[in-house]
Amino acid sequence: MTNLNNDSDSNLLVRRPLRRLVIALTALFLFGLFIFWRIDNDRMAAVRADLVDRLLPAFEIGMSPVNFATDAFKAIGDFSSVVDRVAELEEENRKLQEWRQRAIALEQQNAALREVANVQLSGELPTISAQVTADTSGAFRNSVLVNVGRRNGVSDGWAVLDGSGLLGRISGVGRTSSRVMLLTDSSSQVPVKIKPSGARGIVSGNDRSLPLIRLVSNLNQITPGDSLYTSGDGGVFPPDLLVGTVSIDQNGQVGVLPAANLGNLEFVIIIRSRPPEAVEASSDILVIPSHGNFDQATGR
């Protein structure tokens, strides 16, 4: 084997320094790309959105048969386990009886919520419906891609909801696709007000666990189960969208249980917000509600 390749061996000896040079230059180029990305974040975000727009169809070709197969598999599974399901449903029914009691207690609050939601959705805020095409959540970031883009008039910063609450906002718009950065993304910051206490804070994403509330005003005013609404401070999100409820875990961390179901997203509602000049495109801006700062400054 060794004898056969004498020729290519000497060839490789000549090629080795060249090869190293190419590797070094490529590494430098990539590092330069990173620096460029860091300096001109907005332009690179636009370039990225357009590239993703081009790349996505290639992945969708592979995804459609898999999606079809999982749907078919689910349907078969559902059909074959009818007996088990009945037992499960009976159990569930018992639990629901208990929940019914709670539901009655929450009815009043719900009525108020419904009123707010109706005003928001039917009134001054027109919406676009979109389908989730890809889940780009990884170990560190949480976002999804939806099938509407510049073509449909979507622009950066717009709030995104599912049927029951805020999901996040648009961050990166391509021609036919755009990215929704979810509440749980580590760079997501949503200014909120907490009802009924009226305290204000920021819901910030926390990679894997529930988003945290960093309170600008008094922490003692809130209790688990309080509702969180967008405050509209900072001008990115329209005010009074339901975000979720306050929950406190074993470690005493104050977190948010999102009202939206972030687990298995299929359809989303995008709210056309104010003109884009009120919106910053960069993904990592901290928006601090000015109201809360005043509270601290004046010691109220």
């Binding site: 990539l30 590092f31 790309l33 990225r48 993703v52 790349l55 780009t136 990884g138 970031r141």
Partner: peptide
């Protein structure tokens, strides 16, 4: 690089490290 683009990672840095 494609993974970085899709998953909203900083561009280039991880690719450079993987190459090295």
């Amino acid at each position: 690089l494609v993974a970085e683009l899709l998953f909203l990672q900083p561009l280039g840095l991880w690719a450079a490290l993987v190459l090295l």
